[in-house]
Amino acid sequence: MSDHFKVIGVSSAGKELEEVKQDEAIDVVPIEMSRKITPLQDIKSLRNMYKFLKKERPQIVHTHTPKAGIVGMLAARLAGVPHRLHTVAGLPLMEATGVKRKVLDFVEKLTYLSATGVYPNSKGLYDFILQNNYTSKEKLKVIGQGSSNGINTTFFSPDQVNVDQKQLLKKELNIEDSDLVFVFVGRLVGDKGINELVKAFTEMHQEKNLERNSKLLLVGPLETELDPLYPETLREIENNKNIIITGFQKDVRPYFAISDALVFPSYREGFPNVVMQAGAMGLPSIVSDINGCNEIIIEDENGTIVPVKNVEKLQKAMEKILIDSEYYNRLKKNARSMIQSRYEQSVIWNALLNEYKTLLKEK
């Protein structure tokens, strides 16, 4: 977009924002936005965002994430920004109940009311928004076939990681060539299905006399504040020699390259990049039956879909990958081509650019 517009990136301060400034060669502005429900801090964020937008007078404000959405869209409306666009890439409220759910429902409706266009990044989210009457159909649009950003299949390619790199990483992580490696990439929190994943993996080895050993590779930060894992899950991760935790990794390609299948049993998503990345790296996926996941993965073609929070079905899916080599190889053969044909990044970028240009032309 910076080839066509002056782009300014806004988020809370931190090293990630500075990395965006360097990597994307754009201006950035830090405005603090809490990830929790914090009314007083949110009012301060709204005021700061409004002052910034009144000064800059942009033609387009495009927000991502629920908190940036409510702050950015409300501030943009108050500041008179003509094009106020919000991408919906997952809804935390799906797991909320009671008073918290009512508060989040209200915030979501206010965000969409303040926006001139709302872009759910999957067909499932599009349907969910309509079913819950968050906004009118006229405001909604899915860009391309879904996804917020598509996937660069040249960057995410098995060819980008050589044999020496893979062998070195396997040695470092104590993975044998004979091991089948299940990988999860993302935040290690409850609503990503990590409790169920660890239990399914552990019970698979306890209950079965399996001919082939497997490892579970957990790539991502362990978060202990917003949605911590069960104590028994943390103990199992610490004590099970077949479970490997790496922490956050900026480049996840080497970890996909030494793995055989992605397991992604999340409770909710918009359109998960991880599943597209794994597919582009040639990995079949076991995913939960949720928005986005059940659009990227086609049953028995490039992976398999299991019910949310179902340890038994997740375990059986992992066992089939481990035991049935013919089935596994069929899924693996289709994995990369099915991502290339539907979610190549350049297609999504061009569709979004066309959306911007069309809106500006109309005004």
Rank of each mutant, 00 (worst) to 15 (best):
Glu295Gly: 01
Ser285Glu: 08
Lys333Trp: 01
Ser288Met: 08
Leu352Asn: 03
Ile297Asn: 02
Ile323Lys: 11
Gly303Arg: 07
Glu299Ser: 05
Arg336Gly: 01
Lys320Arg: 15
Asp300His: 07
Leu359Thr: 12
Val311Arg: 12
Thr358Phe: 06
Ala317Met: 08
Lys309Trp: 12
Lys361Ser: 12
Ile323Trp: 04
Glu344Thr: 08
Tyr356Asn: 10
Ile286Asp: 03
Ile286Leu: 08
Ser325Phe: 10
Tyr343Leu: 01
Ile297Ser: 01
Ser288Ala: 11
Thr304Tyr: 03
Pro307Tyr: 09
Val347Tyr: 05
Asp289Tyr: 00
Asn291Trp: 06
Asn310Pro: 08
Ser325Trp: 11
Arg330Asn: 10
Lys363Val: 11
Asn294Ile: 02
Glu355Met: 11
Ile286Ala: 04
Lys363Phe: 06
Ser337Gly: 00
Gly303Gln: 06
Ala351Met: 06
Met318Trp: 13
Ser285Pro: 02
Pro307Glu: 08
Lys316Arg: 15
Leu353His: 04
Ala335Gln: 09
Thr358Asp: 10
Thr358Leu: 13
Leu359Arg: 15
Pro284His: 08
Ile290Val: 14
Glu295Pro: 05
Leu331Tyr: 03
Ser285Asp: 06
Ile290Gln: 05
Asn294Phe: 00
Ile323Asn: 06
Ser337Trp: 03
Leu352Trp: 03
Met318Lys: 10
Arg330Val: 06
Leu360Asp: 08
Arg342Asp: 02
Ile323Val: 15
Asn294Arg: 14
Gln340Ser: 08
Val347Met: 03
Ala317Gly: 05
Ser346Leu: 09
Glu299Asp: 08
Asn354Trp: 01
Thr358Lys: 14
Val347Pro: 01
Gln340Met: 13
Gln345Glu: 11
Ile298Ala: 04
Tyr328Phe: 15
Leu353Thr: 10
Lys313Tyr: 08
Glu326Gly: 07
Gln315Glu: 11
Val308Leu: 07
Lys332Gly: 02
Lys320Val: 15
Asn291Tyr: 09
Ile290Pro: 00
Val308Asn: 09
Ile339Glu: 00
Val287Glu: 01
Lys309Val: 08
Leu353Ser: 04
Asn310Gly: 07
Asn354Leu: 09
Leu359Gly: 00
Ile348Lys: 06
Asp300Trp: 02
Ala317Tyr: 07
Asn291Asp: 12
Lys320Met: 14
Ile321Met: 15
Val287Tyr: 01
Asp300Cys: 01
Ile296Tyr: 04
Thr358Ser: 14
Glu362Lys: 15
Tyr328Thr: 09
Ile298Ser: 05
Leu314Thr: 13
Ile323Ala: 01
Lys332Met: 10
Tyr356Leu: 13
Ser337Tyr: 07
Asn294Lys: 10
Ile323Glu: 06
Arg330Ser: 09
Pro284Ala: 06
Pro284Ile: 09
Glu319Asp: 09
Asp324Arg: 15
